[in-house]
Amino acid sequence: MRQSRGIILSIVMIPIACVVAVPFYYILVNTLKTQAQTTAHPLAPPTSFNLDNYIRVFETLPIVQAFFNTLYVTVISIVLMLLIGAMAAFGVLIGKARFATVLGIILVIAFVVPGQATLIPLYRMLAGVQLVDSLNGLIVMYAAGSIFCYFLILGYMRTIPAELFEAARIDGAGAFRVFWSVALPLIRPILVTVGVFQTMWVWNDFITPNVFINSPDKQTLVLQVYTAVGQFTTDWPTFMTLTVIVLVPMIVFFIVAQRQIVSGLVNGSVKG
């Protein structure tokens, strides 16, 4: 029965996977072609292994600078989001019940408000502290993603026996020591899982950098793609090459972190 179910699932999923893979195949093969070849035979495999499009992109656009800008913003933002979210979840979990309830309601309200609705007031606030057109300003904006981290981490923390925290406090450990030495090691699976999802969000985000970044030397990779829409309007192979360059780091990251994502979800579902 199980074997037949697996065969049926494979029969259904393989065609769906092929359909989903067609756009990626289309983009990838056309990065190795000339404009004429792309126009004449867009789905045909390339006749030769031609890397001229990749060389042209690196020569005409500040891809390396944009990559390090994106890497800097992503790493610092994820560290802040995980730290703030974990500390908030731990504080609510061991804090007074009434305070935790009030704080939880406030965070729920903040979570359901669309980010686009607050762009104008946020822009004015960052302008007041001179963080507009700044990578650090982007980090401040992304730090608001701590709310999402807070909810997931709090749900995971509630599966941990409270006796572990109480035992550490009886042994004389303060709140921060309990958080750092007891809570953090126990919630590592959910931290990794949340970190992966938030990394993909920050890396691929377009709206926030587009609103708050003006200088070309501070642009992220996604903004480089947006800028290239006008620059390479008729040169589709070059534009697709830039798209591949932007996607490759996230594809590699997701493949490497895939096992951690599954591990974190499974551990969270069976813990306690």
Rank of each mutant, 00 (worst) to 15 (best):
P45H: 05
S4N: 14
P121F: 05
L103V: 12
L152V: 07
M87K: 00
M200I: 13
L43V: 12
T220Y: 05
F24Q: 06
I160N: 01
P46C: 08
C149M: 04
V19C: 12
V108L: 15
K96D: 14
Q35H: 05
Q198P: 07
F24M: 12
F176C: 03
I11S: 13
A110G: 10
I55L: 14
W180C: 08
L152T: 04
V140I: 05
R5Q: 13
V140G: 02
I160V: 01
Y142T: 03
A66Y: 13
P42Y: 08
A88S: 14
P23H: 04
D133S: 02
I170C: 00
A168H: 00
E59C: 06
A173Q: 04
F206D: 06
F165Q: 07
R177A: 07
A17E: 10
G6H: 15
I147C: 01
M157Q: 00
G272W: 06
N136G: 10
P42K: 08
Q258K: 09
L247W: 11
V182T: 05
Y156K: 04
I94E: 12
V229H: 14
T70K: 03
G137F: 01
M125A: 14
Y150N: 01
I160C: 01
L242E: 11
Y150T: 03
V182F: 00
P23W: 07
Y156E: 01
V102H: 06
V246P: 10
V244H: 11
P42V: 07
V246M: 10
F68E: 04
L103M: 14
V132T: 14
L154P: 03
P114C: 05
N210P: 07
I187K: 01
T118I: 13
I153D: 01
T31N: 08
Q219S: 13
I76W: 02
I255V: 15
I16R: 01
G145E: 03
G85L: 05
K271S: 06
L61A: 11
A117V: 11
L131Q: 02
A36S: 14
L131R: 02
V102L: 11
T47R: 13
V182G: 01
L93V: 09
K218A: 10
F49R: 08
W201I: 14
Q130A: 15
I27P: 00
F99L: 15
R177I: 00
S146M: 10
P216V: 09
F254M: 12
Q37V: 05
L164K: 02
G230A: 10
V19A: 14
L247Y: 11
